[in-house]
Design a protein around this nucleic acid. Structure first.
Lengths: 296, 296
DNA sequence: GAAACCAATCGCTATATGCGATGATTCAAG
DNA sequence: CTTGAATCATCGCATATAGCGATTGGTTTC
């Protein structure tokens, strides 16, 4: 009987629903199902009655609930007592991030982390080369953990966890020939001048890939690494841009169009190196990000 | 942090020695080493000081010991509370065994099991075809668990755990031409009449294989499935036999010889099916056998 | 300095876990 | 009675973890 089994059992018992438990645990329903079954087999008792649509906790399950909580509490105590002796989590965690992507509130996340772990020194690093630069810094050990936007091909030695995503909308001025349209095919954008991020940035690669897949060229006339700057360029009629929805929603002088037949999204993920074992501090930051993310 | 990690940690802390802990846990030193390292990495603290030959528990380790015990106790309670609700372990466990192999005290083992699990009905089954017959019964589900002697080629779907082993010694009467020898090569036994188990029995296959490997024939004149009967036949001068040491040690009229260059041993193992999940009762019996076995 | 002891490490295999897709069952709404 | 949504089980596959046995390297004892 392992701690993980009991944690899964408790989640199901509290939610009275395997699927909701899986969401809470940030895993899949099939994994939850398998775990509960393995626990039941080990105990030699059914813990849930699944015969009806609304599952019931069996008598054995009810008896187990407080004991399972006791085990989990004892585990927390065990961890805390070691932290107390070692003076809590210390050391330095080096965090890579991108300015200008506010989809995920990284400052707030880091604030929470700093409050919970006051002894940890946090070093913030950013990259000239966007997400792909951050990934290289992860691989080289220059940063311990990084918040990145979509990567076309995430390398094998990076472990990614998606935090949130938002649609990328074609943004034009209200005076633009397309301002009255609500959606548009990529093919119709052949003549437009585009404003976009430099190569290497997540946003840029998504759009590049979509045009390449459609066999189309596009004219990226202006490049900037600052997303607010990009919006300002659009506003001044220098070109059009695919920008995240949250950025342009409140701009009265801008209009947005969806791309027909494409699912263009900006996704923010947290990443750690898969090959090197994370420090305790990096692990805690990862866990914090996991709990903070919108549940699917 | 998993229950298994804490159990391993406690064993090392109590033994103050990785190797002894591994023996107590019926695993290997390397596995213990890896487990402790993984726990240390997770906690971000060294638990043992290995710089000297005699390892020391660190301050963090000392703090963890009582908490780890608390977790293990809570786990035991959790299991017990489910057993209490379901009325303890019940059902039927079907045990295959061989009469006449007293190397492992199976009756005592079953006695302990019955005392600890009074609600379980134990069905004893034996096989006409020795260990290979028992293995077939395991595969077919006819028995849940079986105590068997050495198998030449254990099938893939059988999980074996060795319990004990004893040398097989060539046994002759004190009047035999070889009675004064202390060891002998298989080649010199060409003309002897052998008494042995029927085909399919573990003992038989070991000796058959040894002779086959040496490119020799032998003359098995008498076959019996009862090992005491075999000894009696030898005593009456009907032939010679390879018999387990414990059986003939106290027989004044018999002499024993070791086989030169061969390591002929009778090994008793407990076996369960690898493919079907064992019942709770079968699992407990397996655990009991594991704890009862001579530690290496 | 040699031997004994003992934990770390390495390469390999087996098991466990997780995922996504699919299937089966229940139940409510038409 | 049929349809469809909800929901858990199952399957095949990929990856991670754990265990084993052999070996290495460091420490102590004689």
């Amino acid at each position: 009987m392992e701690v993980r089994h009991l944690a899964v059992f408790l989640a199901v018992a509290e939610e009275r629903n395997f699927t909701r438990a899986s969401i809470r645990l940030h895993t899949t329903q099939s994994a939850v199902s398998a775990t509960v079954q393995s626990l039941e087999a080990e105990l030699g008792a059914e813990l849930f009655d699944r015969s009806a649509r609304q599952i019931q906790v069996t008598v054995a399950g009810l008896a187990l609930i407080p004991k399972a909580r006791a085990v989990l509490d004892a585990v927390v105590e065990a961890r805390d007592c070691v932290d107390a002796v070692t003076g809590g989590v210390t050391g330095t965690v080096s965090v890579g991030f991108m300015t200008s992507v506010t989809l995920v509130d990284i400052p707030r996340l880091l604030g929470e982390f700093a409050e919970a772990n006051p002894e940890v020194r946090v070093v913030l690093r950013s990259s000239e080369r966007g997400s792909s630069g951050l990934v290289d810094m992860l691989s080289s050990g220059e940063v311990d953990i990084a918040f990145i936007a979509n990567l076309a091909q995430p390398p094998a030695d990076v472990r990614l966890m998606e935090l949130d995503s938002t649609p990328l909308l074609l943004t034009v001025t209200s005076a633009h020939r397309l301002a009255s349209r609500s959606s548009i095919g990529l093919r119709e954008l052949a003549g437009e001048r585009f404003i976009d991020f430099p190569l290497g940035y997540g946003n840029r690669s998504i759009i590049d890939r979509a045009f390449a897949d459609a066999g189309l060229d596009r004219d990226v006339r202006f490049e900037t690494a600052d997303i607010a700057h990009a919006a300002a360029l659009v506003k001044n009629g220098l070109g059009v841009a695919f920008l995240p929805a949250f950025l342009v929603a409140s701009e009265p002088s801008l209009r947005t169009l969806t791309a027909q037949g494409e699912d263009l999204r900006l996704t923010v993920s947290v990443a750690i190196s898969h090959s090197r074992r994370p420090s305790r501090a990096a692990q805690l930051l990862w866990d914090l990000a996991q709990n903070a993310r919108t549940p699917r």
